[in-house]
């Protein structure tokens, strides 16, 4: 797989990142290097090996349906860049 300008722009959009045009080439180079390095894994024969989705070998790790402690309301809002007494505030994103 090769990363090109189109892929980088799409990824930037999906990640909500603003990428300056002069940075795009560097990003393409970096991403391609990472991919090439990871592609070494393709050399391993994985015939008949179940995909691993989790590092632990545990299964069925559950908890019972019980309500626990909540985060204090003031604390919950504390780190938000913009808020009022009740809500997180974000730039309006729906125009109707």
């Amino acid at each position: 797989m090769k990363v090109d300008k189109h892929t980088v722009r799409k990824l930037a959009h999906l990640s909500r990142l603003e990428l300056r045009e002069e940075d795009e080439d560097n990003m393409i180079k970096d991403l391609n290097e990472i991919l090439t390095w990871v592609e070494q894994l393709n050399e391993v024969d994985t015939e008949g090996v179940e995909p691993l989705t989790n590092m632990s070998h545990e299964v069925n790790v559950f908890r019972e349906d019980q309500v626990g402690e909540h985060l204090d309301h003031e604390k919950a809002l504390k780190n938000a860049p913009k808020k009022d007494e009740d809500f997180f505030r974000v730039p309006k994103f729906l125009n109707q």
Partner: peptide, 30 residues
């Protein structure tokens, strides 16, 4: 473990997991 009660005051049925604070992990309700 946050409560699911409908109609609570805004942003009170929340925890660090719900708010996605770094390092928090999901814990599945059976």
């Amino acid at each position: 473990r946050d409560s699911t009660t409908f109609g609570s005051a805004p942003n009170t049925n929340v925890s660090v997991v719900t708010l996605a604070h770094p390092g928090t992990l999901p814990y599945l309700n059976k």
